[in-house]
Simulated assay, not measured.
Amino acid sequence: MKQSPLDQFQTTDVVDQNHCADASGLRPFISVGIPTFRRPDTIRRAIDSILHQDFSNWELVVSDDEGPEGSTWAIVTEYARAEPRIRIVENRRGRGQVENTNNAMLACTGKWIKLLHDDDWLAPGALKTFAEVSKKHPSAAFITCAANVMEEKRVKFRLAPQDRERISVYSSQQCLTDLYLVRTTRTLGIIPSTLLINRDVIHAGCLMRAHKSIPAGVDQLFFVDLARHGYMVAINDGLIFYDATNHPSITTSKNFDEVDQVTLAVKQLNWNLIEDRKHLPRPETVLRALRVARLPMRFHRQPWRATIRDAMQILRPSVMKVANQHILAYLFAIRPRLGRLLTRTR
């Protein structure tokens, strides 16, 4: 019989077997998985946000990409000694965001896996809300929420619009189409930290992966892969805080041509998964529309020739058609930002 990815996880990576939440035979309802690398400055904030939740049926698994020699390992070990629901595992699958994230997810034992980057943190009551929604949608492939954004001088809180449903359900095809057209899933600010993933989906082999044509777009590719495995539930509340400040060991590509190449490659993969494409624009047209939408963000950060090139795209009838289908309206309705468009590099 073929081993599942979960079966292949080595329990020898666990620091203290007595801290395993599954040791008593009772699995936690939610496992929070934090992949970390050299983040002693922010890891405490992330862990404290979990400890202060008003929902107790959780475990926390921290996958450290640096190992016992790093300063983060000592910090998490200190937490684990005081709290039996916390475990730390060493990433031995291969260095980098992809394998470290997979290592964290594969070590989780809960019914649901809540990803959380080590520089982000949970809002008060987040796990309780996720648990309530997941109990109403036990067969969802994944659940996502909106994100509050911490900038250099302020925090932008996400408040649910009064004219929009708080909870929305999208079929697999609806989600793939929504991702393709950059609609609700983007206005929510979907990033790995907003995800609550059904463990059965991970058990079925849906892990984060790299792709030869998308070397820096693993997050976007992961969202598409999740949508392929089932339906999505969206919570229109800011349940996590996303740290968008310029803090150590985070770099975002300033090469907009690379951003556009990644976007196009993801759109092409996404396009091939959508069953009804009759009324959808081609990937190249979507990219042109996105270039126009990203002009306010790029205006002072790219050569003027590139700005003129992107502005001229709106004169194309096909791009105007996409604009009429609301892709630009959705993007201009929020403050444009790169967010985690590209994976972290180090």
Rank of each mutant, 00 (worst) to 15 (best):
N198R: 07
I235C: 06
Q325I: 04
L264C: 08
D200F: 09
A216S: 12
I240G: 07
V286W: 03
E275C: 10
K321H: 14
I202D: 01
R294D: 14
I240K: 04
S213H: 07
F299P: 08
D243E: 08
R305W: 00
D276Q: 05
E258P: 03
R277L: 12
P283M: 12
R298W: 14
N255F: 09
I327L: 15
F299T: 02
L269P: 08
A323E: 01
P283R: 06
I250V: 11
R199S: 13
A293N: 09
L287Y: 06
L226H: 02
P248F: 10
V233K: 09
Q220M: 15
V233Q: 07
G238L: 13
D219N: 11
F299I: 09
L226W: 01
G205Y: 11
M208H: 02
I314P: 03
A293W: 03
Q261E: 06
H326E: 10
N324T: 03
N272H: 02
V259F: 08
R301F: 08
D225E: 14
A293C: 12
M208F: 08
A306L: 10
C206I: 02
R288E: 15
N236H: 15
M320A: 06
T251D: 09
Q313F: 02
H300S: 14
G230Y: 01
S213G: 05
A234K: 07
L273D: 15
A289R: 06
R291S: 10
N255M: 02
K267E: 11
T307H: 01
P317K: 10
R316D: 15
D237T: 11
V259K: 05
G238N: 12
Q325H: 13
D219I: 07
Q268L: 11
C206F: 03
R288A: 15
D310N: 08
R228W: 01
E284N: 13
I274V: 04
I274L: 10
A311E: 00
N324P: 00
A289Q: 08
Q220I: 09
H300K: 11
R298F: 14
K267Y: 11
V266Y: 03
A306G: 08
H300D: 14
A265D: 05
Q313M: 01
F256N: 03
Q325T: 12
P248A: 09
I240N: 09
D237M: 10
